[in-house]
Amino acid sequence: MRTFYAEEAAYIAAGGFGKASFAGLAACLAPDVVMYQAEALPYGGQWRGSEGIERFMAAMSKVWQSLEFFEQRFVVDRDTVVVYNRGRLRARATGRVLDTSVMQLITVRDGLIAEIRPFYLDTAAVIETLDPQSTEA
């Protein structure tokens, strides 16, 4: 799990698709992996397979410049991992910074990530941070 998060942060910082290797992330994923993102987010929806996760990471890299984790807690129960992430994200378009928390419910199969379900502390704050028209952030 720690490798996955380190690879994710490096991928985002490098600008995503075409600028960074996805191989480190792909090595952590089951072939039939699926991620469920909140529909309200610019990268919302269901992302399936390694190719889907790569498209998700490219979409996320377009909107976020950096992703730093200050605190991560892992709770493991057989094939289920709950991860509490507290961190800071910087938006590419606005330069705004969001300090937030995301809880993720992750299913692991044969040592690989098979399913990811993130739960954001505040999706409205995420959208506002990314919106160049917003004066609230």
Rank of each mutant, 00 (worst) to 15 (best):
M1T: 12
M1I: 11
T3D: 12
F4V: 08
Y5F: 12
A6W: 01
A6K: 11
A6L: 08
E8I: 03
E8N: 08
Y11A: 03
Y11M: 03
I12M: 01
A13C: 06
G15I: 04
G15R: 09
G16C: 01
F17W: 05
F17I: 07
K19W: 01
K19M: 04
K19V: 00
A20M: 09
A20T: 09
A23M: 00
A26N: 04
A27Q: 13
C28Y: 02
L29R: 05
L29K: 05
P31N: 04
P31H: 04
V33I: 15
M35T: 02
M35R: 02
M35K: 01
A38T: 11
A38H: 08
E39R: 07
E39D: 07
A40I: 06
A40W: 00
A40P: 03
Y43L: 05
Y43H: 13
G44C: 10
W47C: 14
R48K: 15
G49M: 12
G49Y: 10
G49D: 13
G49T: 12
S50T: 15
E51F: 10
E51M: 13
G52H: 06
I53G: 14
R55K: 14
A58S: 11
A59V: 13
M60W: 10
S66N: 15
S66K: 14
S66Y: 14
E68D: 15
E68I: 15
E68R: 15
Q72R: 14
Q72I: 12
V76W: 00
D77N: 15
D79I: 05
D79L: 06
D79E: 08
T80F: 13
T80K: 15
V82K: 00
Y84M: 10
N85E: 12
N85K: 13
N85A: 11
G87A: 06
R88D: 10
R88F: 02
R88N: 13
L89P: 04
L89Y: 06
L89E: 06
R90V: 02
A91M: 05
R92M: 03
R92D: 01
A93L: 02
A93Y: 00
T94D: 01
T94G: 00
V97D: 09
V97R: 04
V97P: 02
L98S: 07
D99V: 14
T100G: 07
T100D: 04
V102L: 12
V102Y: 03
M103D: 00
M103H: 08
Q104D: 09
Q104Y: 09
L105Y: 11
I106P: 12
T107A: 08
R109D: 08
D110Y: 06
L112D: 10
I113G: 02
I113H: 04
I113V: 10
A114D: 13
A114W: 09
I116R: 09
R117H: 12
P118K: 13
P118L: 14
Y120P: 08
L121W: 03
L121K: 11
D122L: 03
T123D: 09
T123S: 13
A124Y: 06
V126F: 11
E128F: 00
E128D: 13
E128K: 02
L130F: 03
L130G: 03
L130A: 04
L130W: 01
D131M: 04
P132T: 04
P132R: 05
P132W: 07
Q133K: 06
S134D: 07
S134P: 08
T135D: 10
E136F: 00
A137G: 03
